[in-house]
Amino acid sequence: MAIFLNKDSKVLVQGMTGSEGTKHTRRMLASGTQIVGGVNPRKAGQSVDFDGTQVPVFGSVAEGMEATGADVTVIFVPPKFCKGAVFEAVDAGIGLAVVITEGIPVHDTAAFWAHAQATGNKTRIIGPNCPGLITPGQANAGIIPSDITKPGRIGLVSKSGTLTYQMMYELRDIGFSSAVGIGGDPIIGTTHIDALKAFEADPDTDVIVMIGEIGGDAEERAADFIREHVTKPVVGYVAGFTAPEGKTMGHAGAIVSGSSGTAAAKKEALEAVGVKVGKTPSETAQIIRTALTGATQGEEAGVPSQSMAPTAP
Rank of each mutant, 00 (worst) to 15 (best):
V238T: 06
K23E: 11
P281V: 07
I143D: 12
K247Y: 08
G212I: 11
G294C: 00
R289S: 05
A243T: 10
F58A: 01
A118G: 15
Q46N: 13
G278Y: 05
P56N: 10
A2L: 10
K247V: 14
A272I: 01
T231V: 11
T280N: 06
R26G: 15
G69D: 10
M168V: 03
T242P: 00
S146D: 13
G137K: 07
I75Y: 00
F176K: 02
H192N: 08
D185C: 06
A198H: 01
R227C: 05
D91I: 06
A139P: 03
V86Y: 03
F76T: 09
S178D: 09
V275K: 01
Y169N: 15
V55G: 03
I35E: 09
H229P: 02
K276M: 13
I144N: 06
G64K: 02
Q306L: 10
V238M: 05
P304D: 09
A118C: 01
V86H: 02
T242W: 03
E63R: 05
T135W: 07
G21T: 06
K159A: 10
V207K: 02
D49R: 03
F81D: 15
F241I: 13
A2M: 07
I35V: 15
A141G: 07
G32H: 05
V55E: 04
S260Q: 15
V39P: 07
V55L: 08
A201D: 03
P128Y: 09
E63M: 05
D8A: 13
D202I: 00
K80G: 00
M28G: 01
L29P: 00
A264Q: 15
R42N: 15
V157G: 11
G103H: 05
V77F: 07
G184T: 05
P244K: 08
P244V: 08
P131I: 10
D8E: 14
K83S: 12
T73W: 11
I154N: 03
E268D: 13
P186M: 13
K10Q: 05
T290F: 00
